[in-house]
Design a protein around this nucleic acid. Structure first.
Lengths: 211, 211
DNA sequence: ACCTGAACACCGTTCAAGT
DNA sequence: ACCTGAACACCGTTCAAGT
């Protein structure tokens, strides 16, 4: 073992005084701003420090490297999406398979669309980010909520949930990601909203029996 | 207009003498080698030039920048995948919807799996690569072959193909990409092979009527 | 405990000089 | 027509000195 793969991505120190708490917040805020304005490829630690109003030395006091900075921003965003999905799952629990499916797709899409720019920027940085840990955690979080939802469906019983649930999770996140990365406009997003529901529902029905 | 977005990614000059044709080939070969050995993030133009046995100056005589180098490698790989998919489409034409779907999924997966390492490496560089043009071309190439296949199905007639065909294309490429990027092992790939067929077929059947 | 910024290392890219 | 490699610019990261 000897430490997780991504020890080097963790924040370097935990701020103990008020001043430094604000410093850290200023740095992550600035990171998002620079990300949106300049894009992932042209994001510079110097830019971030300047925009945050601190020196580069200070930035590196809290984040061991550029990757850790972006990792922190990604973590925030995923936490938001994960919480939104879990809340959505609770809302739709116990309804019919069709209702659950449509509601779940709509809510996930809405959460991503509400932060379209940042979603797009973050997707673009994923590869450089060594974010396998975060993505895995997110995947199992969504799968757990999904599994619970499927069990709760009032009209259908899912067969082989251990295979079907991961596939549906991948369908949901993969199609939304692809559409956003392909620069899909309003019409592509509208199509995704209806067709993705239809797709997920057709597969789920084919994989379940009457309850 | 004033030139395509990615003029700066095109090769800088076309080699006119034998010597330089070999030079270009050596450079792209070396790029793949370095990509596989060091990974996308640590790929260095110096490394590539050294491995190709030329100076950096020579490298920059044929490729205007690092991006163009990777762009060329990606283009080669996509060309191979595209051709494989079109050949597969021809083979399955005229069969039943279920046979077409299964054959298509299996063939696409096989083509990607046969070059798993390079596929993985290339997926990781996509964002940095400004490869929207290549991806769009690839998407419509696959969609055209898919549309032809759907029309040829002996037992079913697809409704709203203008919506359904792009969704199936995205399903196919998106799920394979997600599985590969998530470092899926043999068992995840086997699951993908069967479940992705089931998913696509369930959606296609729900979107078609008897022929 | 926190902050600063000059200095270092590394890498992408150019260009004057060569064959 | 093609090749070379020293030189330049830029950016991530460190660390000795400060409050």
């Amino acid at each position: 073992m000897a430490g997780s793969v991504s020890d080097h991505l963790k924040p370097r120190k935990t701020p103990r005084q008020q001043r430094s708490v604000m410093t850290v917040r200023a740095i992550t805020e600035a990171t998002i701003q620079v990300l949106l304005v300049r894009g992932a490829a042209r994001l510079t630690t110097t830019d971030v420090a300047q925009r945050a109003g601190v020196s580069i030395g200070t930035l590196y006091q809290y984040f061991p490297n550029k990757g850790a900075l972006l990792h922190a921003v990604l973590e925030q965003h995923l936490e938001m999406i994960g919480a939104a999905f879990e809340a959505s799952a609770k809302r739709h629990r116990g309804r019919t398979l069709a209702e659950i499916t449509e509601g779940m797709v709509a809510d996930y899409l809405d959460a991503k669309i509400a932060n379209l720019d940042i979603s797009r920027a973050l997707y673009r940085m994923l590869p450089d980010l060594d974010a396998g840990d975060l993505q895995k955690a997110m995947a199992s979080r969504i799968e757990q909520a999904l599994g619970m939802l499927m069990e709760s469906a009032s009209d259908k019983l899912l067969e082989r949930p251990e295979d079907v649930v991961p596939m549906v999770r991948m369908l949901l996140t993969g199609m939304v990601r692809a559409t956003i990365e392909e620069q899909g406009g309003p019409s592509e997003i509208a199509r995704l909203r209806s067709e993705l529901s239809a797709m997920a529902l057709a597969y789920l029905q084919a994989s379940s029996v009457a309850a």
